[in-house]
Write a protein that binds this DNA or RNA. Sequence first.
DNA 1: CTCTGTGCAAACACTTTGCAGCTAA
DNA 2: TTAGCTGCAAAGTGTTTGCACAGAG
Lengths: 154, 154
Amino acid sequence: MLKSADRPRIHQLKKKIDDFRKKCRSAGLKVTEQRLAVYKALIETAEHPSADAVFKKVKQIFPGISLDTINRALRTLNKINAAFVVEGSGDAKRFDGNLQPHQHFKCVKCKRIVDFYHRPFDNVKVPVSIAGKFEVRRKTVYLEGTCNSCRHKH
Amino acid sequence: MLKSADRPRIHQLKKKIDDFRKKCRSAGLKVTEQRLAVYKALIETAEHPSADAVFKKVKQIFPGISLDTINRALRTLNKINAAFVVEGSGDAKRFDGNLQPHQHFKCVKCKRIVDFYHRPFDNVKVPVSIAGKFEVRRKTVYLEGTCNSCRHKH
DNA sequence: CTCTGTGCAAACACTTTGCAGCTAA
DNA sequence: TTAGCTGCAAAGTGTTTGCACAGAG
């Protein structure tokens, strides 16, 4: 049964899927059923799933799919900006001994993490909606992109 | 040779190392040479090194040390709040299909990542010191801590 | 002296790659 | 038809664990 409240949401999903097809085409990529299934799995949840979680979900509809396909599809989505990897997860763990308030910029190409200091960011207030439900121990503004030396290569 | 400009920095390092000894003791941990070497390696650099990078550095002073010791020491530093893991790196990659501006809170215990929306954070201005050197493609406020349901366990 | 930390090796978890056959456009 | 995609298997990378001995407190 379809609640009338669901209709705008469903319309939104349709639009996203349409946009996705366009993004694929303009990148010269094929819209395979698998790829689409991975994309749907991703936009239907707010859980920031791992590749394995997506795998489990997609397998319900597509029992033959392999984890590699999921991984490849997710990498592709990331490349065409249809999804992104949450705050630099993956790769090797990186450590920081600087306990003073400071922020990070990360170059997605050379993986370099640069500290920067910007007084206003030190004082970001945790919104009440969070402060009530969680005990916040660390807060930081995280920027991601490409550093000049990587951008000027090639 | 010691430049006079280095002296305050060196004093700072000494103080940090002292604090570190205290933190260890109050956590019932031993201050081994290896542990100390790992800690020093970490606070002497602004490079946010991986375990392997720390390994290479410490090995110059301590040729016999093993990578496991580095990994264990880093985990320990993290636990006693002498260092932290940069923006949730490590674990499995996590993906997000929500391209609207939004922020993340991550529970360090259950690894859940919660979206939150807070208008002022959508408009954080990239400081000029960064904007000149880097092409910023994503910016987000990242909060980390413990969620209530994890905190109330035990 | 005791209890934690270390080094080694093996196990583990996750991601990437090479290749042959398949499929969307 | 043909470039690009999938599934499988294997290899690669990074992290964790079990155990016996060594060393800090």
